[in-house]
Design a protein around this nucleic acid. Structure first.
Length: 302
DNA sequence: GGTAGACCTGGACGC
DNA sequence: GCGTCCAGGTCTACC
């Protein structure tokens, strides 16, 4: 797919400057959720970001992103051709959600004390992987396990099956590679457990062209229908679908997990146990922004 | 539409 | 060292 890149100029053949929206914060994107802790992402000092990417031509590079006075400075580990610079610019634009506008939500959120701080922090964008395939896999790895296990599975996936670049850098594995690796190896080497068949079958479907995840980025489907499409992927239930919809810039659903039950209980129900339905009802009033309102709510439980 | 049980891993805990 | 329990979403079968 094509994202309108905000590439402003390239001072050298490995440094790009991207223009950013007037309301934007790189630290807010980096801290938006746990993706920045997952390989091959890396959090840099002062909330910069590094990522190892496999470009369309197969070249594997590492790039860093830092917020600078003139915009975002993207520095690659290798010299890039003009086409590669454009590709990196396009990917970073998508990953940081530079095309998104939150002014409508901010206007509503400023009237809610529990959301005012996120507006002041210029938050709202959630960090994305360059390809939706990668975000679906990451999301599958977050389900039904502890965070440290999620991080371990992702790290092993990249270490064992990611394409190698210079030094020790490795990119996230391609669908083709994971399709070839297969379920048994994912189960035994990555310790994915019952998630292994889900990851293997998704990789095979993407590789065979049976599912076009990238098309979802620009899909004109209404959100409920897009949600149904996502939930046709084995292993993607209500929570995972809502999470992926947020990544796709659709905020009509709240990703209800055990944490949501806990914080909503503490915040709105005096600590009494709540059902997923009660969580959804609590944020219903935020309409097409309810996912964001939930995600950036200033929980007293935090 | 709602519910129960199985699916896995890895850490904590008791013996 | 071994066994048991628990946390964490989704799937499937069943009502």
């Amino acid at each position: 797919m094509m994202i309108n890149s905000t590439l402003e100029h390239s001072p050298t053949d490995h440094i790009l400057i991207l223009s950013v929206p007037s309301v934007f914060s790189l630290p807010a994107v980096v801290k938006s959720h746990g993706w920045a802790q997952m390989a091959p992402f890396e959090v840099l000092p002062e909330d910069g970001l590094a990522y190892v990417i496999r470009l369309g031509g197969g070249k594997v590079i590492r790039f860093t992103v830092q917020q600078a006075a003139e915009g975002l400075q993207v520095e690659a580990s290798d010299r890039l051709s003009a086409a590669e610079q454009a590709e990196v610019g396009e990917k970073v634009t998508w990953m940081l959600g530079l095309e998104q506008d939150f002014s409508e939500f901010y206007a509503l959120a400023m009237d809610e004390p529990k959301l005012r701080r996120m507006v002041e922090r210029r938050a709202g964008r959630v960090l994305r992987s360059p390809a939706l395939f990668e975000d679906v896999i990451r999301t599958l790895l977050t389900t039904n396990t502890l965070w440290r296990h999620t991080l371990k599975m992702c790290r092993e996936l990249v270490r064992l099956y990611g394409d190698a670049g210079r030094d020790t850098m490795r990119a996230f594995p391609t669908p083709a590679r994971l399709a070839q690796v297969g379920e048994a190896a994912l189960r035994e080497q990555v310790r994915m457990g019952y998630r292994a068949p889900y990851v293997a079958s998704l990789a095979q479907a993407v590789e065979a062209g049976a599912i076009d995840l990238e098309a979802y980025k620009t899909s004109s489907l209404p959100t409920p229908e897009l949600r149904q499409e996502l939930m046709r992927i084995k292993g993607v239930g209500g929570y995972a679908a809502a999470n992926l919809l947020m990544i796709l810039g659709r905020y009509d659903y709240v990703p209800v997990d055990s944490w949501a039950l806990k914080v909503v209980s503490a915040e709105f129900f005096g600590g009494e146990p709540v059902t997923p339905k009660q969580v959804l009802t609590t944020f219903e009033r935020w309409g097409c922004w309810q996912g964001l309102a939930y995600w950036f709510w200033e929980w007293k439980f935090d």
